[in-house]
Design a binder for these strands. Structure first.
Lengths: 219, 219
DNA sequence: ATAATTCGGTTGTTTTTACAACAGAAATGA
DNA sequence: TCATTTCTGTTGTAAAAACAACCGAATTAT
């Protein structure tokens, strides 16, 4: 687990905490490390969480499948990001989504109660970490609102433009890659893949953008 | 402002803080009170916030209007709830939505930096309030994910069922009222009002539910 | 290297939604 | 009280999306 301390050091959760302190906190917060093969579930809808988790290797999707097999991708977790933090509060209820490894992944679990309860001993970073938690979840909150903005658009084209524009802005470049293949992008925007593919090609033919695989350029 | 201390006392932000301490914190956190007539804007898209705010009277909608006049209602703020907390972190960027009074409303502003910076003097409740902030924003986060769940549904009918079921569950009764008229519900679910109205009546005729104004019963 | 699977694009059909326009009922205001 | 505005439901039409089925290319596995 120590090998991942440099990764943890760069996370929002441990911002302002040095490597030495993180090392101490791994013990104090009862950190545990698990690995998952591509396709395996880290959590399933309906579970109750007692951990905040940080992804230190690989990639995850937060998603849910309905009865008819329609999948909805809520969020993408990349290295250094947290998940499950919205379920840290007592009485948060069951997890609303599945969390799935989209590539071989490694995750570190931290005991929630130990983060929230200030212990008497060595680690005096709890209150900083709680503030970090707050900032991190704020950012996630804003991201969810942006996603709502995409999904609120009435047509597939508008959804695509809304999402791709934001991604271009976020990556500060008209050319950028997205973390999805076509089916995943459709699941992320909650539209039909073939219809979306069709719309993307129309937009390309109209000179709005070009793309190759998951690399897009807005014109 | 003191008249609202009992209201503040029941909020998630001040959970575990007594009325006397809240009274002290009103000074310490430089609380300011503002009132808005129905229809007035509390905040506008693009503004930068330096305050966390609590609604103590009336009702607010967090919404945004696009260029063509399509409105999207992101969230409803009821008495005792906070808003703007996702913009408390430094570098959060500009507000993504408008916040509008849907009835005559009163709001109390708290200086964000004073909440996040532990002051040396009297108020030793900062760290508790930061934890409360974290819990409150967690709840909002889960709510946004639920809303994403409604909006991810492909048809108007499914969106309605998803939303109404959740509302029924939340209010622990098959009969419940919603905080929207028809146009607002359509804006909340991002569908056309007349199409939605039509679908609602079909569902009623099929015996799935009954309704009168904003009071619904699932059968 | 070859077979099998996944992925992305295309097309035609069916279903659904958006849009527009209107009318009666209800609520609001003068 | 009466006039005005808002709200809800209804209908028909046009536009868009979902769905299904298919194909070739690319990727992955054996």
């Amino acid at each position: 687990m120590r090998e991942y301390i440099p990764v943890l050091n760069r996370t929002k959760l441990f911002a302002g905490v040095g490597e030495a302190e993180i090392s101490a906190m791994l013990v104090c917060l009862q950190a545990k490390q698990y690995s998952y093969k591509k396709g395996e579930y880290v959590f399933r809808q309906g579970e109750y969480l007692n951990n905040i988790t940080v992804l230190v290797e690989g990639g995850l999707h937060v998603q849910s499948d309905d009865y008819w097999g329609n999948r909805s991708i809520i969020n993408v977790i990349t290295i250094g990001e947290m998940f499950g933090e919205a379920y840290a509060a007592p009485g948060s209820g069951a997890l609303l989504n599945d969390v799935v490894a989209v590539e071989d992944s490694t995750v570190i679990f931290f005991d929630v109660r130990r983060i929230l309860t200030v212990c008497s001993s060595a680690c005096k970073f709890h209150s900083l970490v709680v503030q970090n938690l707050f900032f991190a979840i704020s950012e996630k909150n804003r991201m969810l609102v942006q996603k709502l903005g995409h999904m609120a658009k009435r047509s597939t084209r508008e959804k695509l433009i809304s999402y791709l524009s934001e991604e271009s802005k976020r990556q500060s470049s008209p050319t950028f890659t997205i973390p999805f293949n076509r089916q995943q992008l459709a699941d992320f925007l909650s539209v039909d893949r073939s219809a979306m593919s069709n719309e993307l090609c129309k937009m390309r033919d109209e000179g709005l953008l070009i793309f190759e695989k998951n690399k897009f350029t807005l014109l």
